[in-house]
Design a protein around this nucleic acid. Sequence first.
DNA 1: CCGAAACGATTACAATCGTAATCGTCAATT
DNA 2: AATTGACGATTACGATTGTAATCGTTTCGG
Lengths: 122, 122
Amino acid sequence: MAERISGAEHEIMEVLWREAPLTAAEVAERAPAERGWSIRTVKTLLSRLLAKGVLAHEEDGRRYLYRPAVARDDHVARESRALLDRLFGGSVSPLVAHLAERDDLSAEDIAEIEALLKALKP
Amino acid sequence: MAERISGAEHEIMEVLWREAPLTAAEVAERAPAERGWSIRTVKTLLSRLLAKGVLAHEEDGRRYLYRPAVARDDHVARESRALLDRLFGGSVSPLVAHLAERDDLSAEDIAEIEALLKALKP
DNA sequence: CCGAAACGATTACAATCGTAATCGTCAATT
DNA sequence: AATTGACGATTACGATTGTAATCGTTTCGG
């Protein structure tokens, strides 16, 4: 497993992580409108995701019902780790430091993170 | 600008962000050994990065000296933002929450982030 | 019962990527 | 002067990606 998911494929996965199972047509309806995908394109992406093993399908008459075969959380964890490794030596604090330096942290972000961390200590 | 840098290209950029200017041969020497790249491959990647405008070159006799044309910080900021947008609704605290839930935060991480945030307040 | 619509499967095709090899040229060595 | 080696430029080629179109088959509406 641990198959690579491309950008367009990811958008499809987001639809199915939000709601599943769905038919191809339903996925197409729920896909981000700004991509302007034809139903054909959506079906191609669904096939590729099936082939990669990150989607599962069950037959519903002549159609398929698709559902995720990997948890969003697992995927998110892998992607996050990859970014931290690639850009920040593998740990989070440099990321936070970086965002702080670039004034990319709102007061809310700061408050939320502090609350989170406080809750972590017993 | 804002050209897309691929994975292999990124490794080349890391070399030049660390030390520049360098000749193609020097970049090849310093590239991660585990990639096992031939000098040809490194040269191809350098050309592509030049074409994308993220590297600059100056002539040194018959050779080129390469140096970054974009700051690592800017690149890192763009990549980080892209990940936060794609996976966490655009803000950092969900990322931290996610890592915390998955026990992916060491005590050190927590301490460092707290120190960082404390330093941010007036 | 027949034609149209809908499905999944297969095929298409250009762009990017990873990984080079070849080509033409110049310079240093014999 | 002829040869060898190093350089950048150009070309190669299969895999992946984005974005579909076509094909063969089934089903549904008339």
